[in-house]
Amino acid sequence: MHDFGQPDDKISMPGSAKGYIFRSAARPKRSSNVTLWLGLSMVLLVAAAGIVSVFWTPYNPINYISPHILQGSTASHPLGTDQEGRDELSRLMAGAWITVYSGMLATLIGVFLGTLLGVYSAIGKSAITEVVMRFGDLLLAFPALLIATLVSVRYGSSTITAVLAIGIAFVPYVMRFTRVSVIKVYKSDYVLTAKTYGLGKVMILKKHVLPNVFPQLSIQAMLLFSVAVLSESGLSYLGLGTPPPSPAWGDMLSEAQSVILTDPLLVLWPTLAIALTVLGFNLLAEGILAKADVRNM
């Protein structure tokens, strides 16, 4: 599954698995356009909702209190109000912003550190690279949840602790992936040719390796982003992420849980929002893969 703190989702595990996401043999080609556009529109919808919410939401997502609590859909509140009388649509939009920026930040942290360590472990000196590799293996046993727990017990939980925890948990996965991709490129004939021309390590890295690894890495980053969204919602549901009254989707779910019998829609909206985001990024990544056939990149 995916779940929380787990960047496993369809991340190809070089070395053991055979990099499934790069096999498009089992994927019907003609549906790739549909997948791509469906994914892209979902992603754009969520991103737009998040960005708009920074400047404008129908009501204030935290401070506005309507006299009517748990109101169903009305003209002034299209998605109704929650158990404290706050406008559900505004909170959902503001939650999109929290999700988008925390997911991006976590993915950036993971990809940046992971690529750095991965490239180093692929081309560095053997003794130290072994240490780096083992460190990565060790880090695999620390899911985001545990890192978040260990940090929160002293410093309290916030969006930042959740983002850090998720980002650090991503590092070993990105590292492995980058390492394998870099080694693969290094073994190719064109790098050999470049070497015979006397090109140095750094130049080979800059001119041949990174441009070749980058497209695959960006696909991985999209998949990681959807894992980050799931992790973030799980952490804030447990109270280890963005604290209330901020409208993180996980917080909204844990608050709505108590009124699920009287107003199940309050659980449904954040669920749909999470599913839409995750689905959007997964489909987008899959669509791009099928279209570009990254195997040959």
Binding site: M1, H2, G234, I274, A275
Partner: peptide, 8 residues
């Protein structure tokens, strides 16, 4: 199925 968190 993959996109829905297990706690939901």
């Amino acid at each position: 199925g993959i996109s829905v968190p297990s706690f939901v």
